[in-house]
Write a protein that binds this DNA or RNA. Structure first.
Length: 459
DNA sequence: CTACGCGACTCAGAAATATCCCG
DNA sequence: TCGGGATATTTCTGAGTCGCGTA
């Protein structure tokens, strides 16, 4: 959808954003634009956004209709300096179409210094939902042993996580029923207690006696209310989201404006993990700016952390592709905010990847010959390596890495264990088996052939 | 030289959300 | 044109891999 922006050219000390947005909205209704103008009773095909960070007001089309675009652009053409004067002090620049330049990263012009990810990098930092939009309590009580208890906002917020999971599971659209899982509930309960007041902690002794039904009911009511919102309210919500994206959703890298992939710091939530992760059900807490490292151009203005907060550190690493990073408190692994996949960085690394694949293709026959021979080698090591390579090549199984007990126990080609191999009647797998019988591993592929489809698997 | 830990990046599964379609 | 179910798309983030620095 087209978007047009007006830069605010005067220094703004005090600015009433609501009034300015209203002013711009009404610009397109001025009588003097005659047949181009939008009448007051007509549904406007645009919403107005204000970006404090980028000092601009934009209109974003909500309709793709050619006619509407022509009218908007026609009005832009006819705008006079007087139209752009919001107040005596606050003046807008002429509107321009907001579009992201496509950087042809394969092009000479777009090349950046060798060995570096970026030569310039400007952005507004990540978005902290819990700081910018503090939790608004709904007041529904949690029931324990048939008695209602009012929760503090902090308690309620966590209780919502669990209640929402129950709602999702009831809808039948999820594949896992976690709220009936012992480990999940135990982990959740242990962590939930850390958020309870001393008083509630004393009363709530047994997790199974907690009854979330009133909270579930309230959350469902709130969802219904949202469904019933008027168009105006829906628009207001849309505007909010679009303004957030305008403020935080773009970075300028190597002088090209590109979208940021996921500019929101992961908010507090229940940790689910995949499969039987032993940490499933734990509560992943909120991350504060004090834990976040910002990577930005040394020449750029450092983004301002949310009020009352500071960054952990600000670095200027030209070899790093990320703009913000923090440690995930559950896994202790680094998490990053990256630029979007449509940008030059991803384009370039994809290019490298596919070139490597082309190169590999040249050696494929040689590699296949080699591992086929290795499988019958008298050397243990060669036999193992050959088998792993065979599994990867023929069955698309991943390599497999070392893991510790605190992670989901999955295995790859190199980490398969005896218990993963099931012997089956060789007749069932005629083809594969005849080929492999002499390799003493004949049954392994049969089981894998029966596995789920996919271009790459772990088991 | 090797082993190891960890930082940085890509991949992919599941859920959420948007869109489509039909009565 | 409305509701709701089916289907497609997007978002979110856990997990896998690799390579580099260090001991």
């Amino acid at each position: 959808m087209n978007q047009y922006c007006y830069d605010i050219i005067t220094d703004l000390t005090q600015l009433d954003a609501t009034k300015l947005k209203e002013y711009v909205r009404k610009l397109y209704q001025k009588k003097k634009f005659k047949d181009l103008r939008f009448s007051a009773d007509e549904k406007l095909p645009y919403i107005v956004l204000y970006s404090k960070k980028d000092k601009q007001v934009c209109i974003k089309m909500t309709s793709k209709a050619k006619k509407n675009i022509e009218r908007i652009e026609g009005i832009h053409f006819k705008l006079k300096p007087a139209d752009l004067k919001f107040t005596e002090d606050i003046v807008l620049d002429k509107p321009y179409i907001f579009e992201l330049e496509q950087c042809a990263w394969w092009d000479e012009d777009c090349k950046i210094a060798k060995g570096q990810k970026w030569s310039t990098l400007i952005h507004n930092g990540p978005y902290f939902t819990h700081l910018v939009e503090p939790y608004e309590p709904h007041g529904a009580p949690l029931v324990y042993a048939n008695v209602e208890y009012d929760l503090t906002p902090q308690e309620e917020r966590i209780a919502n996580f669990y209640a929402r999971r129950i709602i999702s599971e009831m809808s039948g659209n999820v594949t896992q029923i976690w709220t009936k899982d012992k480990v999940f509930n135990k982990n959740f309960w242990t962590d939930f207690k850390k958020y309870l007041t001393a008083e509630h902690k004393k009363i709530f002794k047994d997790f199974s006696k907690l009854d979330f039904s009133q909270i579930i009911e309230r959350l469902e009511e709130l969802k219904e209310v949202e469904k019933q919102m008027t168009q105006k309210e829906k628009d207001a919500k849309k505007i909010k989201a679009a303004e957030r994206k305008q403020d935080y959703g773009y970075a300028i890298i190597n002088d090209i404006k590109e979208p940021v992939g996921n500019f929101t710091i992961e908010p507090a939530a229940i940790f689910y993990g995949r499969g039987n992760n032993p940490k499933r059900g734990k509560i992943k807490r909120d991350i504060d700016p004090e834990e976040v490292i910002i990577n930005i151009d040394e020449k750029a203005k450092v983004p301002v952390a949310p009020a009352g907060h500071n960054w952990k550190q600000v670095i200027h690493d030209h070899n790093a592709a990320w703009i913000a990073s923090w440690k995930d408190p559950i896994s202790n692994e680094s998490k990053y905010v990256y630029l979007g996949a449509e940008g030059q960085l991803k384009g370039r690394s994809d290019f490298v990847k596919y070139e490597k694949a082309r190169k590999l293709n040249k050696y494929l026959n040689k590699i296949r010959k080699q591992y086929t021979a290795d499988i019958t080698s008298h050397l243990n090591k060669s036999r193992q390596l050959g088998t792993v390579l065979y599994l990867i090549d023929r069955h698309g199984i991943r390599v497999g890495n070392e893991k510790d007990e605190s992670e989901t126990d999955t295995v790859g080609a190199s980490t398969l264990r005896v218990e993963h191999v099931k012997l089956k009647d060789p007749v069932v797998a005629k083809q594969t088996v005849t080929e492999l019988e002499r390799d003493h591993i004949r049954i392994v592929p049969q089981q894998l052939v029966d596995g789920p489809p996919g271009n790459s698997r772990h088991i």
